[in-house]
Nucleic acid binder design. Sequence first.
DNA 1: CTGTGTGCAAACACTTTGCAGGTGT
DNA 2: ACACCTGCAAAGTGTTTGCACACAG
Lengths: 135, 135
Amino acid sequence: MKPIDILNKHDMKRTSCREGIIEVVMTASQALSENEIRERLAGNYDRTTFYRSFKTLEEHNIIHKIVVNNQLVKYALNNSVTHKNEHTHFFCNKCQSVKCMDDVPVQKYQLPDGYSDNKTEVLIKGTCANCKTEE
Amino acid sequence: MKPIDILNKHDMKRTSCREGIIEVVMTASQALSENEIRERLAGNYDRTTFYRSFKTLEEHNIIHKIVVNNQLVKYALNNSVTHKNEHTHFFCNKCQSVKCMDDVPVQKYQLPDGYSDNKTEVLIKGTCANCKTEE
DNA sequence: CTGTGTGCAAACACTTTGCAGGTGT
DNA sequence: ACACCTGCAAAGTGTTTGCACACAG
């Protein structure tokens, strides 16, 4: 499916910024930060526009946000797989990359009485396959 | 163990700010934000001092940081239990509280070849027991 | 006394908001 | 034409750094 189709499907206006963001995260093999997305984008957009676009795209369940820490936020496309099962995220301490582990589902946690869970976020930190081989 | 003993054990200078922070997180039943800690503290300290104290205390494994999102960070004491097993954190969407779930250990995740994990962070979002009963 | 912690000022980064003007449908 | 998206400016918040002074050991 092309970026335009995705926007149409969600009844969203087809603007070059949105289309570009979707295009970039779609072709990326990893989650990308705002800056990484900007670098790969043809046009130049204001940060405000980015923030608003990310927010809108997230609200429409087209992308999701991964908060590594309070200084590093990345975005990735929601594909049909990740949309069904919650997946874990992997953060490489060396190259700072974030990857959606579509094949590593979030496990179920048994909470004490009275607690109800809505969403469980799992961030696994370590060394990725790329950095491992470079050692 | 008292705050002073903890500082001594880690060869850290015994300052009123550090002592106060430890005292507060020690007696708290939940993780606390910088502001929540400030409110409960006798003396008045500069934000800079807080940031540096948190950083130092974290480096010495006395407290740990819980990043809920890029706008909300909380701190909690490392007790002997949590220091041994990694534990999960619970965030209540209603009252915004964060609790260390010492009885809910982090599960093991099987990663693809080449990946090695170092630390796994689990943040469960939902409704806490308090907010549940108030519905 | 010496090294380290603290307070203050400033700078920097991230994020949000208001408003005017431009663009998609 | 109308709704909504974008860019710019500004403000609010979170965080870091440099420097002078204070304090613990």
